[in-house]
Structures are given as C-alpha cells and as structure tokens.
C-alpha cells in the first residue's frame, strides 16, 4: 500500500502550455522594466553631477548595445501594458442595472486614457 500518488511538478512546467508561457513572459518583462528604471535613476544622478558626467552617460546610452536594450525594454513595457489592460475588465466590474459593462469598453477606456496621457507627454516633450 503506497497511498495517494503525488505527481512531481517539473521545473519546465511553464513551457508545457502557451498560456503559461505567455504568463511567464509577462512576469519576465518586469526584469527589463526594472533595469530600465535603474538606468533612468543613474541618468538623474549624472544630471545632478554636472554637464560632463551627464554627457558621457548620454554617449554610453547611445552605444548600439544600449539602444538594443531600450528597444527590448520598450517591447516588454508594451507587452506588459497591453496584457494588463486586457485583464482590467476582470478586476473592474461595472454594472449598469443587471448588465455588466462589456469587457472591450472597460479595456477601451484604459487604452483611451493611455493615448491621452501619451499625447500629453509628447506635447510637453516635443513642443520645445
């Protein structure tokens, strides 16, 4: 008599199913976003340290490797944002009477807000 059998969970469990894989990918995006934030903090520090320090850091950021990193980080941020926005209807349940406001509208509001804020930032940055 050996009792109930417990099946082991392989360390590759997240490769067995597309949904798990995409989930792990989304979790992984946080690494790139964290790295990007560290670079941004260093930028602020250099700015404070003087013009020379700032300009040498900008040259460092212009290196092909760093540009590639930023492209990947941007893709990661976009992926995370899009998947997150698509999940918001699960969290925000808005009811009008007995009917639930459909998911595309809830997600759509997020996208709309995103576009508005991005436009605002773009206007502030680009007008000068």
């Amino acid at each position: 008599m050996t009792g109930p059998y417990r099946r082991p969970v392989p360390s590759t469990w997240w490769l067995h199913n597309r949904a798990y894989f995409l989930f792990m990918l989304r979790e992984l995006t946080s690494v790139f976003i964290a790295a990007y934030l560290i670079l941004l903090l260093i930028l602020l520090y250099r700015l404070n340290a003087g013009r020379g320090a700032y300009e040498s850091y900008l040259r460092f950021l212009g290196a092909p490797g760093m540009v590639t990193f930023h492209v990947i980080a941007l893709a990661a941020a976009l992926f995370h944002t899009v998947t997150w926005f698509n999940l918001t209807p699960k969290v925000l349940v808005v009811r009008v009477g007995a009917r639930r406001v459909p998911a595309p509208i809830i997600a759509g509001v997020n996208y709309a807000a995103w576009i508005v804020f991005s436009a605002l930032v773009a206007w502030i940055v680009l007008r000068g």
């Binding site: 949904a19 798990y20 979790e27 699960k90 969290v91 349940v93």
Partner: peptide
Amino acid sequence: CTLVGECTVACPEHVDPAGAIQRAKL
C-alpha cells in the same frame, strides 16, 4: 494569485474565478 488567468479559461460554468480573485484584491 499572480493572475495567470487559466482558471477562468478552464471553468466550464463561466464562473471567472480569476476575476473574482482580482475583485477581492481590489
């Protein structure tokens, strides 16, 4: 819960447990 969301996909009764959990978090 880290919001994998597969519980909702698997649910045969469209209960949407993932949504329930996120709403409980909120």
